[in-house]
Design a protein around this nucleic acid. Structure first.
Lengths: 149, 149
DNA sequence: ATATACTCTAGTTATTAGATAGACTATATC
DNA sequence: GATATAGTCTATCTAATAACTAGAGTATAT
């Protein structure tokens, strides 16, 4: 399951990517636009900032903007930041391997074999999808009238 | 994350598949062999039985055995039974779709698009892996000396 | 009969997700 | 340099759930 935190983070980043440019967006506006509880969003944005995916400006005219090129922000990073490793089981994780206590012989554990496949497939997708590539996909699906309006 | 329940279920089923045949295996033996808390395992096995993946025999000489051909028991069924839909987000589920409350336009939601890909990839793996195919994979990895021993 | 072994109901405990409150700090602008 | 603006930080709170446990009940083989 994707946590709300991770989901909100992706939504917020996508919104900021869509906006683009140098104009920061206020938390309150982001929260309203994306239907996210503001105080909850604040913590999420802060965390994204502390990991370089966002930058912030205080005071009047302040707010948040992307911390780097949206081509270089991948869903995998976002999801790992909030939800931990992608693997369904710690012993199948590439980035945060942990041995299982139960498990006679890890090398021939069926659960691990299957879950490693799931992890790999998930990582291929999430580490292969950047904010900008996801934006492009969304754009292609958006009806022309909605884009004009 | 895969729950312990789902993990134990797969391990138990795999052990019973390996055993094969008509001889039932006692809960206590299964629990010891697979390092699973017995009372916890009891509930899991019962659930698997109630969904046709196992059958049971009471009394002396009783225990559990597979409810059908291991070629027809897929990881996807097991995981869904204990952990619910495979999709990381309910709006991306094929088998248990639920709309999100937040979400202006579902058709162009970036989160949903990406998570649908993850779901599809996961389903392709788990619904494509049966107990017997997984067993075969494990066997191929088992060193010859372990098989002889 | 009786021992065996599964079945069922009802807990317990610890952790975490999701959200909220409020004080604090930096900055733009007049 | 006062003041409004807007992000930053700490501390909680609550409800839900995962993981596990206890114990009485029921069916079956011998």
């Amino acid at each position: 399951m994707l946590s709300k935190k991770a989901k909100y983070a992706v939504k917020a980043l996508l919104a900021l990517a869509e906006r683009g440019g140098e104009e920061p967006m206020r938390i309150a506006d982001l929260a309203r636009q994306e239907q996210i509880p503001q105080k909850f969003l604040e913590a999420i944005l802060l965390s994204l900032r502390n990991h370089g995916m966002l930058q912030s400006r205080k005071g009047k005219g302040g707010g948040y903007l992307l911390g780097r090129d949206p081509k270089a922000i991948y869903l995998g990073q976002i999801v790992r930041l909030f939800d931990g490793p992608l693997a369904p089981v710690p012993c199948a994780s590439q980035t945060a391997y942990v041995r299982c206590q139960d498990c006679q012989d890890e090398a021939t554990c069926g659960v691990r074999l299957a879950m490693k496949d799931v992890r790999d497939a998930t990582a291929r997708i999430l580490d292969g999808t950047s904010l900008s590539s996801l934006r492009r996909r969304v754009e292609r699906l958006t009806p022309a009238r909605a884009r004009r309006g």
